[in-house]
Design a protein around this nucleic acid. Structure first.
Length: 619
RNA sequence: GGGGCCGUAGCUCAAUUGGUUAGAGUACCGGACUGUCGAUCCGGGGGUUGCGGGUUCAAGUCCCGUCGGCCUCGCCA
């Protein structure tokens, strides 16, 4: 875990308790000669028949304890009686003990450079077993991790692993940096309700039945969106909250049913004010948590440019490998797949994998073809760039369909050199982008085109206000219905809705959507126009969001906000690709807690009180 | 809702085309050993091969179903 400072390097004097004088990560040569008491878990025992070594572990580190049966004779003051020695011989992994002894410098050649406490050891004289452990299903200290199912069931054992403890510490410190930062900038942390009202659109709600209102339900918040806007109407001016959010949708490696947002809203601001505020927060994350300066302002891309260059609205910009369009060349060539696609309005785009021609066999390329198939691409055209008789040309079974001039055009368009591998997808633009964006991420990783420790954060601006739902034949809000319209595009609301840009912004980092927000509508006329566009009549809007619309009539300041995914930020900063590892008690892909068994059945009486009757699902 | 991978000792894994008594490391138990830090050495116990069904002379292995975990498409304003 990176970081300029951590708890273990701070003064730990305050960690002394009535049971211990120091922690297991604390003792150094300067403590030699002192009598100390440590508490912790037995990480390892090495019994030599006579002398017994115990590695004692707590959150702060590992200290070697020595139980020497001859100590009483050899070293005055370190007396170890036979009963204590025998007790030490019976210690096993994960026993919780309290040990008193004297700090000794380790002898010549006995220093363990792998331990921060490796220059010393404690010669134990007293031992109390505070809690004898049964044999654990896995060892928190083992190199090899057990399956995740087991780790989740015995989460308390998993949490003892130093790696997980470091992540919990990082998460704590990220929260602390966040609170300090917003406090310094005049923000108030305000709590909003967990039991709220269901406001359709968006994700599926988690519902809570009401006992006193038969047949009615609260909904857990998908985000505090409406409350924070109302706080602005309420004159809070600057609000933030580390808010728990709930969404009953299918999970992914970066999605949990309950997660935390760093939620922000500001009054009397425009887009730049929010972006500047968050730039500062990200810089604080980098300096305080990684010990690395980051240059501000963060880079910005428009949504259109992000799609054009990376095929994605959340590009990983730690590496290049940008997408290039060769539709014009494809239209003119003799390769049927290419010219038919362009003739029917499709695009041909591709990327140049540097020095990769020799790294991917035919079988590997078949694998890449299958990979892009996951996003609907029906094929992947590939060419190796070679130099032959002084000419740089394409080599592939399909190369014969391209004239020498076309080959040169393609090579120049992708800035390719001999040894590079060119990969193209021909399809409708959405498929081309999805396939190539995912291929780009895969190649970036496989070809090690970036430093995994780098933090590449950028803003993606000017998302479309609405997207077309082809199935239901209507426009849908891309962000949410309260998102302001780009000032230059207001007149297009009726004439060309798909081209209307929103006053919205996403913060993308290392390929993850790490924050999302917008300037809000505070003009009732524009709000009505947006509702009209997404097919929501006044009555329906009133029923769903009436309380917000009412609030906006009573003096609403121009306001804007954003929310950062706290779990995702911890994941990114810790260089992990799994959100469960940054949550103390995460849920499985089926939203179950393997430790507690949640969700579980309840008493019939509880259901009765809640006026609930369950129906078994059809087979 | 769809697709894919996985499930064998407490744990991590192995087991030829379907073929004898399902093995190894580690953990655990017993013994030996006075400076280890992956301690070492000797010995031992430990299995409903997730569960149910089917094919077969014979199933850990093949087929169907089911449960669980992971990845993913849809979904996630």
């Amino acid at each position: 875990m990176p970081g300029p400072s951590s708890t273990s390097s701070r003064s730990t004097s305050t960690l002394s308790t009535s049971l211990r004088t120091h922690t297991c990560g604390e003792l150094r040569e300067e403590h030699v000669g002192q009598t100390v008491t440590l508490c912790g878990w037995v990480a390892k025992y090495r019994d030599h028949g006579g002398v017994v070594f115990i590695d004692l572990r707590d959150r702060y580190g590992l200290t070697q304890l020595v139980f020497d049966p001859d100590a009483g004779e050899k070293l005055s003051g370190d007396g170890l009686n036979a009963a204590t020695h025998e007790l030490a011989r019976g210690l096993r992994g994960e026993d919780v003990v309290k040990v008193t002894g004297t700090v000794h410098a380790r002898g010549e050649g006995l220093v363990n450079p792998k331990l921060s406490t490796g220059a010393i050891e404690m010669r134990a004289s007293g031992l109390t077993v505070l809690n004898k452990a049964v044999t654990p299903p896995f060892e928190p200290g083992a190199d090899q991790l057990p399956g995740e199912e087991l780790r989740l069931k015995y989460r308390y054992l998993d949490l003892r692993r130093p790696a997980l403890q470091k992540i919990m510490e990082l998460r704590h410190r990220l929260s602390k940096v966040t609170r300090d930062y917003f406090d310094e900038h005049g923000f108030l942390e305000v709590e909003t309700p967990i039991l709220g009202r269901s406001t359709p659109e968006g994700a599926r709600d988690y519902l809570v039945p009401s006992r006193v209102h038969p047949g009615e339900f609260y909904a857990l918040p998908q985000s505090p969106q409406l409350y924070k806007q109302i706080l602005m109407v309420g004159g809070t001016d600057r609000y933030f909250q580390i808010a728990r959010c709930f969404r009953d949708e299918d999970l992914r490696s970066d999605r949990q049913p309950e997660f935390s947002q760093i939620d922000i809203e500001m009054s009397f601001v425009g887009r730049e004010d929010v972006l500047n505020a968050i730039d500062g927060l990200i810089a604080a994350f980098s300096t305080e948590l990684l010990g690395k300066e980051i240059s501000l302002p963060l880079p910005r891309l428009t949504h259109a440019e992000a799609l054009d260059r990376f095929g994605s609205d959340k590009p990983d910009t730690r590496f290049g490998l940008e997408l290039k369009d060769i539709s014009d060349v494809a239209a003119a060539c003799e390769f049927g797949v290419f010219n038919k696609t362009t003739a029917s309005g499709g695009k041909v785009r591709g990327l140049c994998a540097p020095d990769a021609a020799a790294k991917y066999s035919r079988k590997d390329l078949d694998g890449l073809t299958a990979f892009v198939g996951e996003w609907g691409a029906r094929g992947l055209a590939w060419f190796r760039v070679i130099e032959e008789d002084g000419a740089v040309k394409l080599q592939a079974p399909t190369a014969k369909f391209f004239t020498a001039e076309q080959q040169t055009q393609i090579i120049e368009r992708l800035s390719a050199k001999p040894g590079d591998l060119l990969l193209f997808v021909a399809d409708k633009p959405s498929v081309v982008n999805a396939a190539l964006a995912n291929l780009r991420n895969r190649l970036g990783k496989e070809l090690e085109l970036y430093d995994p420790a780098e933090l590449a954060a950028l803003w993606v601006l000017e998302f479309p206000l609405v997207t077309r739902n082809e199935e239901e034949n209507r426009w849908e809000a891309e962000h949410h219905p309260f998102c302001a319209v780009h000032p230059d595009d207001e007149e297009k609301l009726k004439s060309d809705p798909g081209a209307v840009r929103a006053e919205s912004y996403d913060l993308v980092c290392n390929g993850y959507e790490a924050a999302s927000g917008s300037v809000r509508i505070h003009d009732p006329g524009v709000q009505q126009a947006v509702f009209d566009l997404i097919g929501m009549d006044a009555e329906e809007a009133e029923r769903r969001f009436g309380f917000l619309l009412d609030a906006l009539k009573y003096g609403a300041p121009p306001h804007a906000g954003i929310a950062l995914g706290l779990d995702r930020w911890v994941m990114i900063l810790a260089q992990l690709d799994n959100i469960r590892d940054v949550i103390a008690f995460p849920k499985t892909q089926k939203a179950a807690d393997l430790m507690t068994g949640a969700p579980g059945e309840v008493d019939g009486k509880q259901l009765e009180e809640l006026h609930i009757r369950t129906v078994a699902p059809p087979k």
